[in-house]
């Protein structure tokens, strides 16, 4: 039987790792839930942002906390351009999968052309800092990530609940034609949301650069688990995405501590299936 220290530490690591799932799920959940666009290139955009963070950090010695100020707006613009394509070709949910998949593949190739297929690692002096609380260690970078993800998810949730734009977006997501007949300009809002989703990918990318391994094929490594998180968290629900991310992260981590680490990938989909069957009403 694993010790309390081990379980507690695994829980902490898992919840914090889940923050990354939640952060990646955030933009995906918004565009899927509110625009009915499944953006597979979300991961590629996050990795593009990660590589840019890496490049600015290693070549020009710009701290990620500064480069993020450039990268996130740039990602927002990329999101707008991407949405122009969706808009121009009147892309539906299914077609969006294919188009964004192609877009992701093109980005993967472009990243590989410039940065090669080799592993890239952005070494920083703070990447392995931890705070000791009692018997437990809390990694600082992951903690910051979770706080940022929390602020973004909470802020987005409030934005969708409390502002005219947010409510109009939700109304449009439910019935775009009716919303339009009440004067909601779905097109403009959709551009805004697409830009925002890509900007969130940019934020995630900055943390990916600091925490994870960069290799072009890694773009696909997060796909399965983040999709599970998006669905568990309910489409278009930012807080749901974050909590689902942490739930999956914690479940994976506990499975690794109690059973075998090889069980981790099974966990996210098992949780997904259980929740789909059980269908709890906590929205």
């Amino acid at each position: 039987m694993p010790s309390a220290t081990l379980l507690g530490q695994a829980l902490i690591s898992g919840v914090l790792a889940g923050g990354m799932y939640g952060l990646l799920a955030l933009g995906l959940s918004l565009s899927w839930g509110l625009l009915r666009l499944v953006n597979l290139s979300h991961f590629a955009l996050a990795f593009l942002a990660a590589y840019l963070t890496y490049e600015m950090g290693t070549t020009y010695h710009i701290d990620p906390w500064w480069s993020v100020l450039v990268i996130v707006p740039a990602m927002f613009v990329i999101g707008l351009l991407q949405h122009w394509v969706f808009d121009r070709f009147k892309v539906n949910e299914l077609a969006s999968l294919l188009i964004t998949f192609s877009f992701a593949v093109i980005l993967e190739v472009a990243i590989q052309l410039y940065w090669t297929a080799d592993y890239r690692r952005f070494e920083t002096h703070y990447s392995t800092l931890s705070i000791k609380v009692g018997a437990f260690y809390i990694p600082v970078l992951e903690l910051i990530l979770c706080l940022v993800a929390g602020v973004l998810a909470w802020g987005t949730w409030l934005w969708l609940r409390k502002t005219y734009v947010g409510k109009a977006l939700r109304a449009s997501a439910e019935d775009a034609e009716i919303a339009a007949a009440y004067g909601v300009d779905h097109k403009k809002l959709a551009y805004l949301l697409s830009g925002l989703g890509a900007a969130y990918a940019g934020v995630a990318g900055t943390f990916i650069a600091l925490i994870a391994t960069l290799a072009p094929a890694q773009i696909w490594a997060w796909l399965g688990v983040v999709f599970a998180v998006v669905i568990i968290g309910r489409l278009g629900n930012p807080l749901g995405a974050l909590f689902a991310g942490m739930l999956i992260g914690a479940s994976e981590s506990i499975a690794m501590a109690v059973l075998s680490p090889a069980w981790a990938p099974v966990v996210s989909f098992s949780v997904l299936i259980v929740l789909l069957l059980w269908d709890p009403d906590w929205s």
């Binding site: 914090l16 490594a221 680490p261 981790a264």
Partner: peptide, 16 residues
């Protein structure tokens, strides 16, 4: 301990 290729988070493994 065996972990799956492509494992993302090593926190729990490290604790063990």
């Amino acid at each position: 301990l065996e972990y799956e290729a492509g494992n993302r988070d090593f926190g729990a493994i490290a604790a063990r």
